[in-house]
């Protein structure tokens, strides 16, 4: 086998070291932030913390956890990511499957496609979108966070390309067997596209998890805000002239901000290794052989 040759072993060693170096380059800033998040506010604000906390304490985390909004916000975020992703995937997969057919099978396919591409480029901006949400009665509703981004042209195009890369013989065989489009879609296409589904799901989960601005403008009631928006309210850039030195001194912005990066990102980081399971090569081939 190729990986037993001497040349490949040398390559493998060099490659592994290179990967470690790149990994370190990505890890160091995170370690710095971790150290800041566990430091006392004075040394953090003075820019003295590098990779080890000074004046170790977990106050920044406690301050965030003790926010009356935290638990509710976490729930809403999880719900948002789950519902939003499930629905997005449903819409995306169906549309992508149909659009992966050629013009003759799906008459008007190219019109559909450009109809969608257009939405990636042109937008009316914030004001009309807001007016739409008001008109639909979605202000202050959970669905205001889900519905507007449910269909994404980018995801549909990625997915349809994955579908097209699957061996066509299987689809033809299935159709000849008398199975309809829906059966072919569910029985053949979906099981074979797990890596792609995992990828697009991950993109969607991360998108929902990180979105904060829609929450801030569509949801007026703070008890209904998702986590990303709530974190925004805890570390508000205070206007010094109004709050005065006594308040500024009490807010250790840096440690709070650093802590919130971790609080905000950890749940979504945990999803990744779970989805990595589906990144296994050979599923497609196995299916064809059967």
């Amino acid at each position: 086998m190729y990986y037993k040759t001497r040349g490949y072993r040398i390559f493998n060693a060099v490659n592994s070291i290179f990967m470690a170096a790149v990994g370190l380059l990505c890890l160091l800033p995170m370690l710095h932030l971790l150290a800041v998040s566990f430091s006392a506010s004075a040394p953090a604000n003075a820019g003295l913390v590098s990779f080890w906390p000074i004046g170790f304490n977990a106050e920044a985390y406690l301050r965030t956890f003790s926010s009356r909004l935290f638990v509710g916000a976490l729930t809403i975020s999880v719900l948002r990511a789950a519902v939003g992703t499930a629905m997005t995937m449903f819409i995306t997969l169906m549309a992508a499957y149909a659009l992966s057919k050629d013009e003759r099978t799906l008459v008007g396919r190219n019109v559909y496609i450009w109809f969608m591409i257009f939405t990636m480029l042109f937008s009316g901006g914030l004001i009309p979108s807001y007016m739409l949400i008001v008109k639909l009665g979605l202000i202050n509703r959970f669905w205001a966070l889900i519905l507007p981004t449910l269909a994404s042209a980018y995801n549909i195009i990625l997915m349809l390309n994955f579908f097209r890369s699957l061996p066509r013989e299987m689809e033809e065989a299935s159709l000849i067997d008398g199975a309809g489009h829906l059966a072919t879609f569910f029985r053949i296409y979906l099981p074979l596209s797990l890596p792609a589904i995992a990828t697009v799901s991950l993109f969607t989960i991360v998108f929902h998890w990180n979105s904060y601005f829609d929450g801030l403008i569509y949801i007026g009631d703070k008890n209904r805000l998702p986590l990303a928006s709530v974190l925004q309210t805890i570390i508000v850039q205070q206007d010094f002239r109004i709050v005065g030195p006594e308040v500024m001194a009490r807010l250790s912005q840096r440690t709070l901000k650093a802590a919130q990066i971790f609080i905000g990102a950890i749940p979504v980081l945990l999803v990744y290794p779970f989805l990595q399971r589906y990144f296994i090569s050979g599923i497609v081939l196995g299916a064809v052989k059967q």
């Binding site: 819409i91 169906m94 799906l106 008007g108 969608m116 309809g180």
Partner: peptide
Amino acid sequence: VLHLMVWPAVILF
């Protein structure tokens, strides 16, 4: 059926 599969996305867009 294929058209039916595209329409939810079309309406949302």
